[in-house]
């Protein structure tokens, strides 16, 4: 056992946690901090259900070590809404029925947000490639792509 103390900012709040040196950021978020919004679908970087941002970069938190978050800003699905106001992506996912079971949804929302932060006017193809690292087995992606398009429109209005 070789636990270490990690100091980060998570969803805007300074946060400290203790984790093993071989523990993933995903496990630290879920098991140490109770942030279970990030999901484990594979643990091998193939499904994107664990997507979070570290210093603005989209990562699979199952492939990042908890200790690597030292001094970084981590954002997770739990921090996406602004108080009681949903991010347009969240609102449009509900409105467009872009989720069925919803297990993939946090990951898709994180990936889509990184896309829209960079490119608020993506084409269908750009959306499809930006989300190609996230697996959804329920929807066939149709309504997800439509929801992201609709959200992009909202984002551009702001």
């Amino acid at each position: 056992m070789s636990a270490v103390l990690v100091t980060t900012t998570i969803n805007g709040d300074r946060t400290e946690f203790v984790c093993e040196t071989d523990e993933t950021l995903l496990d630290a978020l879920r098991n140490r901090l109770g942030l279970t919004g990030s999901k484990e679908g594979c643990g091998t970087g193939d499904c994107g259900a664990c997507s979070v941002t570290v210093d603005g970069r989209l990562v699979c938190s199952c492939l990042v070590l908890g200790v690597e978050a030292e001094g970084c800003e981590v954002n997770t699905i739990e921090g996406m809404a602004d108080g009681d106001v949903l991010h347009p992506l969240q609102a449009k996912f509900i409105e467009h029925a872009a989720l069925q079971c919803g297990i993939c949804t946090p990951g898709f929302l994180m990936a889509a947000k990184v896309l829209l932060d960079k490119n608020p006017n993506p084409s269908e193809v750009e959306i499809r490639f930006a989300l190609a690292g996230n697996l959804c087995r329920c929807t066939g992606y149709d309504k997800i792509v439509r929801a992201v398009k609709a959200a992009a429109k909202e984002v551009r209005k702001r």
Binding site: G41, C42, T44, D46, C47, V125, I127, R128, F129, L131, A132, G133, N134, L135, C136, R137, G140, Y141, D142, I144, V145
Partner: peptide
């Protein structure tokens, strides 16, 4: 695993 058992992704469709 999902790497070698490949289910459709968004950009396939």
């Amino acid at each position: 695993g999902f790497l070698d058992y490949r289910i459709p992704v968004c950009s396939d469709l």
